[in-house]
Amino acid sequence: MAKVLVLKSSILGDYSQSNALVDHLLNQWEGKTDAIIERDLVSSPLPMLDGQVANALRGGDQLSEEQQSVLALSDQLIDEIKASDTIIMAAPMYNFMVPTQLKNWFDLIARAGVTFSYTETGPVGLLTDKKVIVVTTRGGIHKDAPSDTLTPYLRNMLGFVGMTDVNFIYGEALAMGDEMASQSLNSAKQALAEINA
């Protein structure tokens, strides 16, 4: 049975369609998982990358107490990935990109020598053998269009740290009328039903 890490990043709380779709999937998987780690990146926000955080992630002996805390948090986030077989990521599209809260998570887990390494032939991801399910919701229709900059960003970031088995589930047209939104959400639920734990 799978160990699952769930990441939620919607700022809409109880009105979040991405969170609702992820919860729908978890309900389908009830009894099929060994353990679920759920991290709401909005209710428990992570520090934003700045000079102090970047220096903390490099480690060393000269870190302030605050930087040591950031490094320990980064280690914890990475340990959560390593302990999981499957990562479920709720990634609504805000202004053609992932929410800031999810970007902060990537900034804290992308660490040279820890989650990726540089080689003569380029970077190699170290977080391998993970299955990733990305549930992305959008007000408009962007899938397979130039306006969908979120999907390639996530593929690149996940692949950079070694996670290449990525399945995207799209909930689109959510701001284009009730009928289109309902159809899209039903299609997303059907796609989720085909994913096994």
Rank of each mutant, 00 (worst) to 15 (best):
G177C: 03
G177M: 05
L174C: 04
S182T: 15
A145V: 03
L150I: 06
L158S: 02
M180W: 09
S184N: 12
P146E: 02
A173E: 05
F160E: 00
V161L: 00
P152N: 03
Y153P: 00
E172Y: 04
D178K: 15
G162P: 02
A145F: 10
G171A: 15
S147Y: 09
A145W: 06
E172H: 09
P152R: 06
L150P: 01
S187L: 15
G162K: 06
E172S: 08
S184K: 09
Y153I: 06
T149Y: 10
S187I: 13
S187R: 15
L158I: 13
A145T: 13
R138L: 06
S184F: 07
R138H: 13
G159C: 03
E172G: 08
T164N: 12
S182A: 14
H142N: 14
V166K: 01
E179A: 14
Y170I: 12
L158D: 01
Y170M: 07
A145K: 15
S147E: 12
D144E: 11
A181F: 03
I141K: 15
M176D: 01
N156E: 10
A181W: 02
T149P: 00
L150K: 08
H142V: 12
T149Q: 07
Y170T: 11
V166P: 00
D165N: 10
A145N: 11
A173G: 14
D144V: 08
D165C: 07
T164M: 04
S184A: 11
Q183H: 10
D165W: 07
Q183R: 07
D144K: 13
L150H: 08
L185S: 03
R138P: 01
V161Q: 03
T149N: 03
T149E: 01
Q183C: 04
F160M: 03
N167W: 04
S184G: 09
N186D: 15
G177S: 03
K143H: 12
M163T: 13
L174R: 01
P152L: 05
D165K: 04
G177R: 06
A173I: 02
Q183Y: 06
G162C: 09
T151W: 11
V161P: 00
E179S: 12
T151M: 12
G139V: 11
R155W: 11
V161A: 01
K143L: 11
G139C: 06
N167P: 01
T151P: 05
V166T: 09
Q183F: 09
L174V: 13
G159L: 01
Q183E: 14
Q183K: 14
S182D: 15
E172W: 05
E179H: 07
N167A: 11
A145I: 03
M163D: 03
G159T: 10
N156C: 08
E179F: 05
D148G: 04
G162R: 06
E179V: 15
G162I: 15
R138T: 14
I141G: 13
E172K: 07
K143W: 05
H142F: 11
M157Y: 10
S184M: 10
R155C: 08
P146W: 02
N167G: 03
G139R: 04
T151F: 10
M157T: 15
T151K: 14
D178N: 12
K143D: 06
